[in-house]
Amino acid sequence: MTDAVRTHGLFKRFGEQVAVAGVDLAVPAGSFAGLVGPNGAGKTTTLSMITGLLRPDGGSAEIDGFDVWRDPVQVKARIGVLPEGLRLFERLSGRELLLYNGRLRGIPKADVERRAGELLSVMDLTDAADKLVVDYSTGMRKKIGLAAALLHNPSVLFLDEPFEGVDPVSADTLTEVLRRLTASGATVIFSSHVMDLVERLCDWVSVMSAGRIVAQGPLADVRGGRSLNQAFLDLVGRSPQDGQADLSWLGARPEAGR
């Protein structure tokens, strides 16, 4: 099996702080991959560098064998991106946003309109299609962002925390769409720190900690018989809990009610 994404020694530093300290990420084509790690592990920075939104200080990244920084035309035609933060073109309506995005990629207007209509209905956004994105809720933003990322039928899809702040119904819609995409042979890579979700969805896991990949492989291998949550805690290493004694007041009730 070939790799959809492969990086070598990807490195990024912000001032003094090293955010990503040489990441060698490998994700086989067609897999549903989870990039997990605690807050500040460098997941977002890594994904930004692979998708060409942030210039790395060192190392290289390849998508379907094309170098991200030397062959941007090939790479950008193949990838779909949903970054964190969710800033979209807020003053367009959902439908206008999809139309803009599709036509910017040179897809004929009639095709974009048809695809946008179908995506909006799958995402359950038809009612809100003509409202401005600035008025959308978090869940709706994630869905319209995903729709925009899917519009050109990418072969590799990058999603940064796609399920954060999303209600269970919308989350279910998102996972349905993503499952269908991977079933067709495309690759999905998403970052998360919700282990249950990663365990349920993914067949490939990369664990990041402090700017490095500490484990990577098929879900079963990384898990090694434990729950993914336990495996994650073992890998990342929990800091010793020496402050517990200080919380003795927590839960204590005063004798006299005020």
Binding site: T51, G52, L53, P72, V73, Q74, V75, K76, A77, I79, V81, P83, G85, R87, L88, F89, E90, N101, L104, R105, A148
Partner: peptide, 15 residues
């Protein structure tokens, strides 16, 4: 004025 939405263009523009 595009501000943080500019990434939507950046992921498209390859040339």
């Amino acid at each position: 004025i595009d501000g943080r939405s500019l990434w939507m263009n950046a992921v498209v523009f390859g040339a």
